[in-house]
């Protein structure tokens, strides 16, 4: 019995690492560029890698560089980081519904690895997700982020320009690949994705909200509206 449990834990971890590979590829150009930008902003190699090790947040790290370059105080940069990452409150609460029960200590550990991308991979899975699967996904994503940040500082973005430009599609293509199976199966998923995409486009192109807030607002609006709509239809007996 003990052996069976161990084996499935291991399988789940390996499955997680496999699922994390597409994130690792997607992070490659982003992290290389981060490392290079950090160098040109004046960060040392140690500072660059330490930031990626401790923070592990692409958007926030990029913004911190541009704020540092314009000489803005560290208090404001930290505050900005918090604002940019507020969307993770939402993802963390949603992930809690998705994950198997586990000790608070383990949950506090994998909470560190929650990014837009790891959340998408873990939450797009069918059924409940396991702690081991989450560890696997996050370890591969984190490894790619930290190692490639360092590589970017040391050797620059040393992949051909055309390939680097083409690789900027990677994370988006991954999101599309994660969404598609559910899109095909469920009309509700189509509504959820479409409404959120449309509202986010509206916020982005009118410039009403900054990116971090725009994603939070459009996700919440869509998740609540579609739920009310579907619940309403059920009551009238349409579905």
């Amino acid at each position: 019995m003990q052996m069976a449990v161990q084996a499935s834990t291991r399988t789940e971890f390996i499955r997680g690492m496999q699922a994390g590979m597409s994130i690792a590829i997607g992070y490659l150009p982003v992290a290389l560029t981060f490392g290079l930008l950090a160098k040109t902003t004046g960060l040392t190699f140690i500072e660059t890698v330490l930031m990626s090790i401790m923070v592990f947040a692409g958007a926030a790290q990029y913004i911190s560089l541009s704020l540092l370059a314009s000489g803005i105080g560290i208090g404001i940069i930290i505050f900005n980081t918090f604002i940019v990452n507020i969307r993770h409150f939402l993802m963390s609460a949603s992930l809690n519904e998705k994950m198997e029960k586990d000790s608070l200590a383990k949950k506090a550990v994998y909470a560190f690895g929650l990014t837009d991308e790891t959340f998408a991979v873990i939450a797009a899975r069918e059924g409940k997700s396991t702690t081991s699967f989450a560890y696997g996904v996050m370890l591969v994503a984190y490894g790619s982020w930290v190692i490639n940040s360092g590589a970017g500082h040391l050797i620059g973005a040393s992949i051909p320009m055309f390939l680097q430009a083409a690789m900027s599609i990677a994370l988006y293509a991954m999101f599309v690949g994660l969404l598609m199976p559910s899109l095909k199966k469920s009309a509700k998923v189509v509504y959820l994705a479409l409404v959120a995409a449309a509202v986010n486009c509206l916020f982005t192109f009118t410039g009403v909200l900054e990116t971090g807030w725009a994603i939070v607002a459009s996700t919440l609006i869509s998740a609540v509206l579609v739920e009310i709509m579907v619940a309403g239809r059920k009551k009238v007996g349409i579905i």
Partner: peptide, 18 residues
Amino acid sequence: VLRNIPYAVLGALIFPGI
């Protein structure tokens, strides 16, 4: 609503960024 969030967030992460 929390179970809807992954699909909504994917829509918002893809568009208009892609």
